[in-house]
């Protein structure tokens, strides 16, 4: 039997109702940016890693990224242990509240519903051994624009009637220590930024404004980029010759309002940049609802790497 056919025969979770957006994601698609292929992957990679950790999965196992909730409803056809992390989307299991950052059991016929964000924006639902989904260029990340990934290999989010199946059977029994549980950002949070190539092209006034007052997360925000609003930042450059764009790059188009480029960004682009948010800051920003106030806080690349390695160390051994 082909792999696809065996997935169809396997019992799983059925999508009964969809919300605004639920995507299959893993850590992302790497080593192919030079082809013009976007990175993709879980926007809050920290919550994503915790979800897989809770089940003892490999850290790159495909999970579900659920944005906002909005009535997404999944019904189980079999007994399974899942893990839920990230945003508190007022999830309910057969009408009973389900706390994030823990594993839980789902019995046949039980229904899981994600209602609305109470804290954060994106929840991650991990499955034993990771979700089954076709792999494209080494990743199961679902990227809509490119039509890569997804259950039907068309880059589309979950649809009513889709059946989610998974690769493993007996997950680990883990819980997150209270002091380690990922916290959702609050207004006034800090986003560390490593300053980049065009920083000297901005005026002194623009640089003062960039780092000494809060920015507001705009509702023009998706997996490609998050716009921040505040005073217009100006500099001597209106455009540059297109160059590679790292994760978290803070580009400033002509209107002076910064856009943070996230997982589904294009691979090269021609707007001057202040620098790039650290991966930890990107995870934070991915959970900020529109209206949240954030501060851009310069940090050295070396300090950012120390913080990053410290974060990775949390999952070692456990």
């Amino acid at each position: 039997m082909s792999q696809a056919a065996s997935h169809k025969a396997q019992k799983g979770l059925i999508v009964k109702q969809t919300g605004p957006l639920a995507l299959i994601q893993d850590a992302g698609r790497f080593g192919v940016a030079h082809l013009g292929v976007t990175q993709g992957g879980a926007a809050d990679w920290i919550a994503f890693r915790w979800a897989n950790w809770l089940l003892g999965n490999a850290s790159n196992s495909a999970a579900l990224e659920i944005v906002m909730g909005g009535g997404l409803s999944l019904e189980s056809e079999r007994e399974v242990h899942l893990a839920l992390t990230g945003a508190d989307l007022d999830a309910q299991l057969d009408g009973k509240p389900l706390a994030p950052n823990a594993r839980f059991q789902l019995l046949p016929g039980q229904r899981l519903v994600f209602r609305q964000p109470r804290q954060g924006l994106r929840a991650y639902l991990a499955f034993p051994g990771g979700l089954n989904a076709p792999e494209v260029l080494g990743s199961r990340a679902c990227t809509a624009r490119e039509q890569f990934g997804g259950l039907h290999e068309d880059g589309k989010p979950l649809q009513v009637g889709d059946r989610l199946t998974w690769q493993g059977t007996a997950p680990a029994m883990r819980r997150i220590a209270d002091d380690q549980a990922p916290r959702m950002p609050v207004s006034g949070c800090r986003l560390p930024i490593v300053l980049g190539s065009q920083i000297a092209s901005f005026s002194g006034r623009a640089l003062f404004q960039a780092f000494n007052q809060p920015w507001t997360v705009d509702n023009r925000a998706d997996r490609m980029g998050v716009r921040l609003t505040g005073p217009a930042l100006h500099g001597s450059l209106t455009g540059i010759i297109s160059e590679g764009i790292p994760l978290g790059a803070v580009q400033v188009p002509q209107d002076g309002q910064p856009i943070v480029l996230m997982n589904d960004r294009q691979t090269i682009g021609g707007y001057p940049r202040l620098g790039a948010l650290t991966p930890i800051a990107c995870a934070t920003l991915a959970q900020c609802l529109p209206g949240t106030q954030v501060w851009l806080t310069p940090v050295s690349a070396s300090q950012a790497q120390d913080d990053y390695r410290h974060q990775l160390g949390v999952w070692v051994g456990g």
Partner: peptide
């Protein structure tokens, strides 16, 4: 040039 935490231009 430094481009990001783990990226150089």
């Amino acid at each position: 040039e430094t481009a990001a935490m783990d990226a150089l231009m």
